[in-house]
């Protein structure tokens, strides 16, 4: 495992911890999109199905369990926790799941590396992950005044994707036959979706001010 991959995974882990910190200690999910969290739960559930069939490493298994467990518990918190759920911006978070899930599934049926249940679901999870942040970005745009933790959460998620691209470039040059177009293109699309957010995030850091997206 190279340094970019490890840094990417740790950044991903950090993003989840930031979100859990906000939800668990502040008891608030204001500015957090339940739709995005539900899409991530589907992403991990479909991608990590191989947890029971293929063993890669203890690291791999542990991380998968953490991402699965955290994504489902975050959804549970926002939906069911009696204090947290009150802070959910339900009226603002209006993205429809099936507008995203259905096209991703159809795409996975058409474009995959191998026509097996595992590979089609794997491709589906990659396509879905690429666009799962959209409801969250839409919600940020609507809320405009973004609190620190929510801003950090989205920034860390974007950074994780950018680090994965560096990881693929590194692997391409160091490992024989490491070519994965489906992973790369969906990963690139996913990272590009953060471009706008990154721009305003760094601007707000430069001006030492609050993160605010334009109307």
């Amino acid at each position: 495992m190279n340094i970019f991959r490890l840094a990417g995974d740790l950044t991903h882990l950090a993003s989840v911890l930031v979100l859990l910190l906000k939800i668990h200690t502040i008891k608030s999910c204001a500015g957090i999109s339940l739709k995005t969290q539900e899409l991530y739960a589907i992403v991990f559930a479909t991608r990590y199905l191989d947890l029971f069939t293929t063993y890669i490493s203890l690291y791999n298994t542990l991380m998968k369990l953490i991402f699965l467990g955290s994504s489902f518990s975050i959804v549970w918190y926002i939906r069911k926790h009696k204090i947290v759920r009150r802070s959910y911006d339900k009226d603002q978070d209006t993205f429809r799941h099936y507008f995203i899930v259905l096209p991703c599934f159809v795409l996975a049926l058409i474009i995959h590396e191998k026509f097996t249940v595992r590979e089609v679901l794997w491709a589906f999870s990659l396509y879905l992950e690429a666009v799962a942040i959209l409801p969250q970005l839409v919600l940020l745009q609507r809320t405009r005044n973004i609190d620190n933790l929510t801003g950090q959460y989205v920034f860390l998620l974007g950074a994780y994707r950018a680090l994965y691209i560096l990881n693929w470039i590194y692997r391409y040059f160091t490992e024989p036959h490491f070519v994965h177009w489906i992973t790369w293109i969906s990963g690139l699309v996913q990272t590009l979706l953060y471009a706008d957010f990154f721009y305003y995030y760094f601007q707000s850091m430069k001006n030492n001010g609050k993160l605010q997206l334009p109307a």
């Binding site: 991903h12 191989d50 791999n60 994965y164």
Partner: peptide, 10 residues
């Protein structure tokens, strides 16, 4: 053994 996707990634 052909591994079609980078399944060692998360």
């Amino acid at each position: 053994d052909y591994e079609p996707v980078a399944h060692d990634e998360l």
